[in-house]
């Protein structure tokens, strides 16, 4: 055997055609079974993923607040002093209205028998509000006036107020709104950092266990005052107010 023949034999042995064929056939006969097993498990995994995704989408649709929370950018501005200014007791006695602060009176709407104000109270759509279950519509609407006596004109009308309270009147929500005027507490609160809920800019302030939220909605200034309402309840309420 020449050296050339020996070298050829070397390559023939090392890259042997028949040996490779045997190995190929052995792998062919064993591989399909593995593929079937892997394929089956892959299909099961894919089906599980599909079910989980569908369940998540369904849950998200039924719990819109859960997903809407992602649209919330929250800044609670802490205020160090109470908003309410104590009224002069003597002044209060003189009027049927409640003096809120100098020059501003709060009065039950029906007591004013103001038909125009009564009609205008519904200028803000408050249906569908997310109010805590233990609170109910007090069915007492208020107006805020610059005048204390009964002879009021609409030019003195500052804002409307609807309120919701629980049985013990410990927890309450007041929603005040006005078309042409600034919120009545505006000058008493320094403008803080804005929050965003449902792409709506608003300002939220907290004092002790009370919140005040101010926002501009449908060309109206809206103020939400709460007492003993949790932050999450407030956020849910503001969501329902600002939703389109």
């Amino acid at each position: 055997m020449t050296n050339k023949e020996m070298m050829k034999k070397l390559f023939h042995d090392k890259l042997n055609q028949e040996k490779n064929r045997q190995r190929i056939l052995a792998r062919i006969t064993s591989e399909p079974q593995k593929q079937v097993v892997y394929g089956k498990w892959l299909k099961i995994a894919a089906a599980c993923m599909l079910v989980l995704t569908a369940a998540y989408v369904l849950y998200d649709q039924r719990n819109p607040t859960a997903s809407k929370e992602k649209e919330v950018i929250l800044h609670i501005n802490e205020i160090s002093k109470p908003i309410y200014i104590e009224n002069d007791a003597e002044d209060c006695k003189k009027t049927e209205s409640e003096l809120i602060f100098g020059g501003c009176y709060r009065e039950p709407l029906d007591a004013a028998s103001d038909a125009q104000a009564n009609a205008a109270i519904d200028c803000l759509d408050l249906s569908g509000l997310d109010i805590p279950d233990d609170l109910i519509d007090s069915e007492r609407n208020y107006i805020y006036h610059l005048q204390s006596d009964r002879n009021k004109n609409n030019e003195d009308l500052l804002q409307y107020e609807k309120s919701y309270t629980d049985d013990d009147s410990e927890r309450s929500i007041k929603i005040q709104y006005t078309k042409g005027n600034q919120p009545i507490y505006a000058e008493y609160i320094e403008e803080g950092k804005a929050s965003i809920i449902n792409k709506q800019k608003l300002y939220i302030y907290r004092y002790d266990n009370s919140y005040i939220a101010q926002l501009r909605l449908n060309q109206m200034n809206v103020t939400v005052e709460t007492a003993n309402i949790t932050e999450s309840e407030l956020i849910a309420l503001l969501h329902s107010i600002t939703k389109e």
Partner: peptide, 17 residues
């Protein structure tokens, strides 16, 4: 590398099969 040749050739023909 020549040492890889057998493996690659086997892969080729498995694909052919």
């Amino acid at each position: 590398n020549l040492a890889d040749v057998n493996d690659i050739v086997q892969e080729v023909y498995i694909e052919v099969y």
